[in-house]
Nucleic acid binder design. Structure first.
Lengths: 117, 117
DNA sequence: CAGGTATATACTTGTGTGCGTATATACCTG
DNA sequence: CAGGTATATACGCACACAAGTATATACCTG
């Protein structure tokens, strides 16, 4: 029932995703960092997992969760037609990226610049 | 209570936004094209308007609605940290957008954080 | 002004869903 | 095996909200 957008409508789930964006985390780590009750964390993680936003790796009794990008990519794709409203010359770049999306994955070039905000 | 994300969680509202992405439309045009009851359209438009997603231009008895990009931009910004999961050299795009963020007049609210109540 | 069109609002109802509390399951260590 | 830790699930409740129906407001045309 819950669509991709419905799922990220929940603030706590967005918080979990944002936390996982930096690095994978176990349930208790999430629980502690976001200061939210453990059943709540587990339940949100279940929703996120079943919708494909995250996946779990088992490490002894811990489950370490990490991002799976596909659903967020869908959001990104939905957003595409609106980008022209705030970006004038990104259009070309966008088409460029579109073409790149189906290009074979190439590894090696990531985050070479420390330009974070 | 309705956040930016909560608002686009509604499929009909997304449909309205997508329709408006192509060009501005009157209420009855939306009603007809999306085949949804008029009160529903008006109500969704109200929500979208109050949240800043759209604005209305008055033309006689008609109200012609058009996109206002700011809230969607916020979504786009939230998405930014995740892009590295599916794009290798989109970093260029990111820097590009970063630069762009401070280029236009004003509107510097990035980094929208909110997890407490 | 009447009649018609276009849009907005009021009110009710049903359903979904997040939360809290309690408990169950799984695994590790001694 | 016992005891502890880590995570998942069950259940009840309260509340937000989308949809439907009916009605109100605004404006245009004759």
């Amino acid at each position: 029932m819950e669509s991709t957008f419905g799922i990220i409508a929940e603030p706590n789930r967005r918080a979990i995703l944002s936390l996982l964006a930096s690095s994978e985390q176990s349930v208790s780590e999430i629980e502690h960092r976001l200061r939210m009750p453990q059943p709540s964390v587990s339940k949100h993680l279940r929703v996120l997992r079943e919708a494909g936003f995250v996946e779990a790796r088992v490490d002894a009794q811990r489950r370490v969760y990490r991002i799976r990008p596909d659903p967020l990519r869908e959001v990104d794709a939905w957003l595409a037609p609106f980008r022209r409203f705030w970006s004038t010359h990104v259009d070309a770049l966008e088409r460029h990226l579109d073409r790149m999306d189906q290009a074979p994955p190439r590894k090696g070039t990531k985050r070479k610049k420390g330009k974070k905000r």
